[in-house]
Each structure stands twice: as C-alpha cells, then as structure tokens.
C-alpha cells in the first residue's frame, strides 16, 4: 500500500508539480510529520499505520497551512485520508488554503479504522491506495443519548471535570486556525489566571466546532484525560446538519456549501 503512495509522491516531486510533500516519516522508531522535498529521497515514508491502522495520524493540514503562509506562491502536496480531505475542502471554503496550490494524495482507511472512528466517509474522493470501506453511524452519540437526560448531564460534567486545561484539543485541531482563540482572548480570559471553568470551556469549544469539525478525532486522541470530545463534536455536527443541511467537507467536490445552508432557522 505504501509503495503505491510513494510512487505517486515521487512522481509529483520529480515532475516539479509540487515543491514539497507533507507526509509522515518514520525515523529511529518514531513517526511524525515531515516535509519531503526530494523525490529521490523518500526514506522512512509511511502512511501512519504503526501497530494498528491509522494509529499515528497527525494534523498534516496544520503543517500545510503554516508552510503555505510562508510560501504562498508554491504548490504543496499533502497526504490525506477521508477526514483530511473534508478538512481541505472546508479550509478552501474558509480561505485558509488555495485549492490551486494544493495537491492531495489520498489513501482509503481500512474497515477496522472506519469502525473505530465511526467515520461517515472513510476515504477521499480519489485515492491511490487502499479500498473504500463502509461508512459507520455515530454509535457513540446514540449510546450517550440513550442515557436519561439528568444522568447524561452528570456523565458529561464528570467527563469535563477531568480536564487539565492543556488546550491539546484546540492545539491539535487541524480546523482551529483562528489568529485569536476565544478560549484565551483577553476579553474573556485574564492573563495569568486559570482557563475558564467547566463546562463553559468545553461548550465554548464545542460551539466553535459547529460547521467546522470534520470528525478526524485527533482531539480525543490528544486528550490526556480521555474526555470523549469526538462524541461531543459528532453531536454538534448532527445538529448543524439537521438545522442547516450542512456537514463540513461532505459537500460537492468544489467544497461549496449547499444553497440552503441557513436552513429553517433563517425563516425564524
């Protein structure tokens, strides 16, 4: 699988179609993001499956944004799974990246990963390796909603109480590109004081994920307290879809929002 991806990346770099390719490299037994610039040197190129499928995924779109801002004239390549591609579309939509300056190389996730992620589309529109797995419904949302509402509130407050305010969920998020974050804006947050209390901290972030979260799950993976953030944001995505008929990254290939994006709420 990785050989097919490498061949494509090698071709892109050798032909000069991209100046660099943001992917993953394994070095000294560890896997992390890496910018490949020489098609002849793809040593250590991996797709992020170390012990289990997709267990070493990183927010490569974040690196793409950072390098693109420094080199706006250059075209860059990036490794994408289904979620990363949803991210790219949404980042194009919100003018964080230029579609003509990005070449994505897609891989499809195996079923085991799609199952764990409860992914609605575990493959990009075009992929050079892997096979399209079946989509999975948001079972985690259903499970938590089956709990009686008073008890459910207790469950969530218990989860939020574990938070150590590391801001890891915000920091790892490939869709968190705001120059100033509400969670540390001076108007809301005094410098030198502990971050806003629970559950305001988490609900603020959850609301800011509306129309933006592409369900990659990196937040949950980065959380030292194992708070099920992904489940929370999945629910937010369901609400946005219900009210506005919009799910970030699932729209047409040009990434246009559906015309009735404001939905019924606009008539109120």
């Amino acid at each position: 699988m990785v050989e097919k991806v490498k061949a494509r990346v090698q071709e892109l770099l050798a032909s000069g179609k991209v100046k660099g390719f943001i992917g993953l490299r394994e070095l000294h037994g560890h896997i992390g993001p890496y910018l490949f610039t020489d098609g002849g040197d793809l040593d250590g190129f991996v797709i992020g499956d170390r012990k289990a499928a997709g267990d070493t995924r990183y927010p490569l779109n974040t690196q793409l944004i950072m390098i693109s801002r420094q080199y706006p004239e250059e075209t860059l390549g990036v490794l994408v799974r289904g979620c990363d591609e949803r991210g790219l579309k949404t980042l194009f939509n919100t003018n964080q990246l230029k579609p003509e300056k990005v070449v994505s190389v897609g891989i499809a996730c195996p079923q085991e990963l799609a199952d764990v992620c409860e992914c609605m589309k575990p493959f990009p529109e075009e992929f050079v390796a892997g096979e399209a797995s079946e989509a999975r419904p948001f079972g985690s949302v259903e499970r938590i909603e089956s709990i009686e509402i008073g008890e459910r509130l207790k469950v969530w407050l218990g989860e939020f109480a574990k938070c150590i305010k590391c801001y890891g969920c915000r920091n790892i998020c490939p869709m968190c590109y705001c120059p100033e974050c509400t969670l540390e804006a001076k108007d809301f947050q005094a410098v030198g004081s502990i971050a806003s209390e629970n559950p305001i901290f988490h609900l603020t972030r959850a609301l800011h994920m509306a129309g933006r979260c592409i369900d990659c799950g990196l937040c949950s993976e980065a959380c030292p307290a194992d708070i099920p953030l992904r489940t929370l944001y999945k629910k937010i995505a369901d609400i946005v879809d219900l009210e506005f008929q919009y799910r970030p990254g699932y729209q047409d290939s040009k990434g246009k929002m559906s015309p009735n994006v404001l939905g019924e709420a606009a008539k109120h």
Binding site: G29, H30, I31, G32, P33, R50, D55, T56, R57, Y58, M66, G168, I172, E221, A222
Partner: peptide, 9 residues
C-alpha cells in the same frame, strides 16, 4: 515555530 506531541512516545 511549534510543538507536536509524539504519538509513538
């Protein structure tokens, strides 16, 4: 310019 936690650590 940034810090990324290492998943394989």
């Amino acid at each position: 310019v940034g810090t990324i936690p290492c998943k394989t650590n």
